[in-house]
């Protein structure tokens, strides 16, 4: 992946600190903040950070908090719409389905970011990425008359704005 070789140490240290803080926050959420438990929590967060760095080396990508909030809101709204969409199609007297496949180009390079984006896209209404081939993704749609590829491109722009390289 790009950007690992140059300036590896500061990137790595910063990514490690960021992830350790996230994991410690998750520990507090599931385990509580009793003083006696904190050393164990710190050790657990350290172990989780070690595993995370080993499994997903930092790429130097940065997160814009405000764009992240916008992205989260977008996908929450998307998953509500998706739920209603499925409910409407399932409960209608006649099944309102027009399923089929659509291919769409992907701008994100292969890697963790692209995988995460596809996971988010599978929560969007009527679309389910099933196969990635090179730089295109094959999407199964409940209704191929919907502008699935266009929506996907808009989501990808939002996603790339949130996680940007330095």
């Amino acid at each position: 992946m790009s950007g690992i070789e140059s300036g590896q140490t500061p990137n790595r240290a910063r990514a490690a600190g960021f992830r350790a803080a996230l994991f410690f926050a998750f520990w507090l959420a599931i385990s509580g903040w009793k003083a006696a438990d904190l050393p164990v929590g710190l050790m657990a967060a350290a172990a989780a950070t070690w595993a995370s760095l080993a499994l997903m080396p930092p790429t130097g990508a940065q997160v814009r908090p405000r764009a992240l909030a916008a992205l989260a809101l977008h996908f929450l709204r998307g998953s509500v719409v998706a739920g209603f969409d499925v409910a409407r199609r399932a409960l209608g007297r006649k099944l309102d389905l027009n399923p089929g496949f659509v291919t769409a180009p992907l701008r994100l390079p292969p890697g963790a970011a692209r995988d995460a984006f596809c996971a988010l896209a599978s929560l969007a209404p009527g679309s389910l990425p099933v196969e990635i081939d090179g730089d295109t993704v094959l999407i199964h749609c409940l209704d191929i008359k919907q502008p699935v590829a266009k929506n996907l491109a808009a989501q990808e722009t939002l996603f790339m704005r949130t996680f940007h390289d330095e």
């Binding site: 998953s79 399932a90 389905l97 209404p125 389910l128 199964h140």
Partner: peptide
């Protein structure tokens, strides 16, 4: 209902992954 009524496996997968996560 979607899982029971939808005609093929891939559309049933939509019913599963979208409706029950929201539920």
């Amino acid at each position: 209902v979607g899982l029971l009524r939808f005609p093929d496996s891939l559309t049933r997968l939509h019913a599963l992954s979208k409706a029950d996560n929201l539920g």
